[in-house]
Amino acid sequence: MKFFKKTDIIAIAAIIAAAAAIWLIYSQAASGRPVKAEIYYYSQLVETVELAAGREKVFSVPQDDDVVLRIDANGSIQFIESDCPDKVCIKTGRIHLAGQSAACLPNGIVVKIVPADGWNGDEPDIIIGSGGKQTGSAQ
């Protein structure tokens, strides 16, 4: 086996191009779509909040008030405080596109952005796990 071959550059470029293309198509398709945020606590949907522009809000879920979320005036949501060790949830930053999610796994809290009118089945059918049942296999 060789360490590196010239043809590897093509393969790597193809992966990067695919990643860029997926991101472009996805963000084009998702931007401008009205959304809401679903907040899950250990896989249980505990709260759904509207993400309309111009409405700021700072809140926690009743199950864990060490974790604080904020909705910004521009209609995005983010974790701003958490007692978890890695702070991945806070580093995720603002999310606002349908399909994005932010998670604080140590506290079991997941925020998912979904279209305000729900997934309608036009999307590529790649929602993995229990949430996929909403659109995928049922149709």
């Binding site: 896989s43 999610s101 996929g132 049942k133």
Partner: peptide
């Protein structure tokens, strides 16, 4: 890992994260 996370903590929308997973994998 992403698939396992999706199963443990409700479904996640893979398309939104595929680019990150691909680039960080490279």
């Amino acid at each position: 890992q992403f698939i396992a996370i999706s199963f443990i903590y409700t479904g996640m929308y893979l398309v939104a994260y595929l680019p990150v997973l691909l680039i960080s994998g490279v």
